Amino acid sequence: MSIQHFRVALIPFFAAFCLPVFAHPETLVKVKDAEDQLGARVGYIELDLNSGKILESFRPEERFPMMSTFKVLLCGAVLSRVDAGQEQLGRRIHYSQNDLVEYSPVTEKHLTDGMTVRELCSAAITMSDNTAANLLLTTIGGPKELTAFLHNMGDHVTRLDRWEPELNEAIPNDERDTTMPAAMATTLRKLLTGELLTLASRQQLIDWMEADKVAGPLLRSALPAGWFIADKSGAGERGSRGIIAALGPDGKPSRIVVIYTTGSQATMDERNRQIAEIGASLIKHW
């Protein structure tokens, strides 16, 4: 067993022997301040990774656009098919120029040779490549099948209805392509620590998230040296922004954090800054 596999296998073990965790309302004060600064709703939840206990939450059962955070769930569904012998990570998928959609920095470079399922998941999570996500959605049967996968996990809230990039439209009061912070946090925890996926697939999923290259201005910008984070960000229309993450000190994750916002007129930089400040408060009061 590799060191990384050992780390993920012992996530519940280490967490069980940690000192009790206590909620700190100071972080919620910052979440509410972010709402004021952005002029928009902000949803927040913080779960203990081992027990699933909610440590703090704000608007945990209000719907927010998922945006690209759905790509972690998508690759979880792909990995479940791999575990069941219905898919192979090494299978190569070929596609054409007509398949390319807006923001496809990886797939646009491989029109000639195609990409493997493993490479597509890596591109979808680490670079948020939209064509990679659409190609992977095709392998599982489309958005409705991802929703069905989530329902089978016990998540009857999260739903995907459309493809990239239309799913980022974020129309107010439109339930399409949305989740709730509580539902997303619980589902992410199941994917990373539950028995739904094999140990190898859980490790692969967290490795992809740990290698995320496009979430630097968010929670990662607030992390002290030595902290662990595996995350996936999302951005959408109407001032929408979000991030889902597993993080913790001492090089291992111990909490799940989900943050979503929508309806702001603020710039992307300002949305990023507010999420980073929430992260800084979380870490300060850990």
Rank of each mutant, 00 (worst) to 15 (best):
Q37C: 15
T147Q: 09
R176G: 10
I243F: 03
T267P: 10
T126E: 01
G114H: 01
G251D: 08
S240L: 06
R92T: 06
D83K: 06
G194W: 10
G76I: 06
A148K: 13
E169N: 04
L247M: 09
V82T: 00
V29E: 03
A183T: 07
R92V: 06
K32H: 03
E35C: 15
K109G: 15
G85M: 15
G248A: 03
F70A: 06
R189I: 09
T131N: 06
D231R: 10
K213P: 09
V72S: 03
S51A: 07
E145C: 05
E119R: 12
T138A: 06
M180S: 07
G114D: 13
I278M: 01
R81W: 08
A246D: 04
K284C: 11
Q97Y: 06
I256Q: 08
V42D: 03
E270P: 09
T126K: 00
G142P: 08
L192W: 10
E62M: 00
E145T: 07
K71V: 04
S128K: 00
P181T: 04
L73I: 13
A185Q: 12
T126H: 05
V29D: 08
A276N: 13
S96H: 01
D83R: 05
Y44V: 03
A132N: 06
F70Q: 05
A182L: 09
L73P: 12
C75E: 15
V29Q: 02
T116R: 03
K213H: 07
V78Y: 13
T262K: 12
K232V: 15
E61I: 08
A40T: 10
G248Q: 03
E164H: 02
T69I: 13
A123V: 15
A230L: 09
P165R: 02
S264P: 13
L199D: 13
I243M: 03
P65M: 07
R59D: 13
G226D: 10
R59V: 06
A34N: 08
Q204T: 04
E277T: 08
L135D: 09
I243L: 06
G76S: 06
Y103C: 01
K252E: 09
G239N: 01
L38G: 04
Y103V: 08
T187H: 12
G226I: 01
Q97S: 13
E237Q: 05
V106N: 15
L199F: 14
D231A: 08
Q204I: 02
A148N: 12
R255A: 10
E119N: 06
E145V: 11
L79H: 15
H156R: 07
M268F: 02
T178W: 12
I54T: 06
N134I: 06
I45D: 00
M268T: 04
L79V: 08
A34P: 01
M115T: 13
A266F: 14
P105Q: 15
V214I: 15
L197R: 00
S201I: 11
D161T: 09
G236N: 08
M268A: 01
I54Q: 06
L205P: 09
E119K: 03
A148W: 13
R202T: 08
E119G: 02
S240N: 06
R162I: 14
S254W: 15
L160I: 04
A222R: 10
F58R: 00
E61N: 05
R238G: 05
A132P: 01
K71M: 00
N272H: 00
L120D: 01
L49A: 10
E169R: 09
F58G: 00
S68K: 01
I256W: 10
Q88I: 08
A266R: 08
A148L: 14
D250H: 11
T112S: 11
E164G: 01
H285Y: 06
N152C: 08
H151Q: 05
S254L: 06
V257S: 05
L146G: 14
T138N: 07
I278R: 11
P217K: 08
I206P: 11
N152R: 08
Q204D: 02
L47G: 04
M180Q: 11
S264L: 10
M209A: 05
V82Y: 14
T267R: 13
P217Y: 04
Y260S: 05
M115Y: 05
S57F: 13
P172N: 11
T261R: 12
R241N: 02
C121Y: 00
A34Q: 06
D250W: 03
L89N: 04
G279Y: 07
K109C: 15
I278N: 13
F149N: 08
V72M: 02
Q97A: 12
F58H: 00
E46Y: 12
G194P: 11
K30Q: 13
Q203Y: 02
I283P: 12
A266L: 10
T187W: 01
G76H: 01
S281A: 07
R162N: 12
S51E: 09
R81Q: 08
T116C: 02
L219W: 10
S233M: 13
V117C: 00
P217R: 08
G226Q: 12
L197N: 10
N173T: 10
L205D: 08
L89P: 06
V29N: 08
I259W: 12
N130W: 15
E108R: 01
A246H: 04
I244K: 07
R81N: 09
L247W: 13
E175C: 13
E26Y: 15
K232D: 14
L79K: 15
E35G: 07
T69V: 07
D155Y: 09
L47D: 09
